[in-house]
């Protein structure tokens, strides 16, 4: 709130403050991306299990496998928050949001493919959709982390 006694900052202070904020956010972004080396493969394995779950049998067995894999994803997220000290439930900006949407769409497509293969009795082909899901998630998480770090530095 403005008061009559507040001396508004000059442009030199404004520039210095913005530079300091940028440095801080770069440090924070580096903390985030420092975890990608283990978080990406771990999440990729869990998602691959979800994509492969129709091979266990449609409905109940698939649901059990998917539920366990989802619990693993929650555990990975918890470990990530503990290691980074950062808690976030949303993308940091438009680029990370776009990457997240694309990633989710591709994973859903991989899962639907597995489900269709299971329903037509071609379970042996589920390994292909599972492999695709793993690679998509592995690469996608790495791209998302970089996009998140970029958006973090550019946040308002």
């Amino acid at each position: 709130m403005n008061s009559g006694h507040f001396d508004q900052p000059d442009s030199a202070f404004a520039l210095e403050a913005l530079v300091r904020i940028d440095v801080d956010r770069r440090r924070l972004a580096a903390r985030f991306t420092a975890e990608t080396w283990w978080a990406a493969p771990a999440q990729a394995l869990a998602v691959a299990a979800v994509v492969a779950s129709p091979a266990a049998g449609v409905a109940v067995p698939m649901s059990v496998v998917a539920a366990l894999a989802t619990m693993a994803l929650v555990g990975i997220d918890h470990a990530f928050r503990k290691r980074t000290g950062i808690s976030t439930n949303r993308p940091a900006g438009p680029v990370s949001l776009a990457v997240l949407i694309a990633l989710c769409a591709l994973i859903v497509a991989a899962f639907v493919t597995s489900l269709a293969l299971a329903m037509i009795g071609e379970r042996s082909w589920i390994i292909a959709s599972t492999s695709a899901g793993f690679i998509i998630m592995l690469v996608g998480v790495a791209i998302y982390d970089k996009a998140y770090a970029r958006d973090l530095r550019r946040a308002r």
Partner: peptide, 16 residues
């Protein structure tokens, strides 16, 4: 600087 760090996040730990 503290507000700027917290703005894009839900929360951050004190040590971070």
């Amino acid at each position: 600087r503290l507000c700027a760090l917290l703005r894009p996040l839900d929360a951050a730990s004190f040590s971070t």
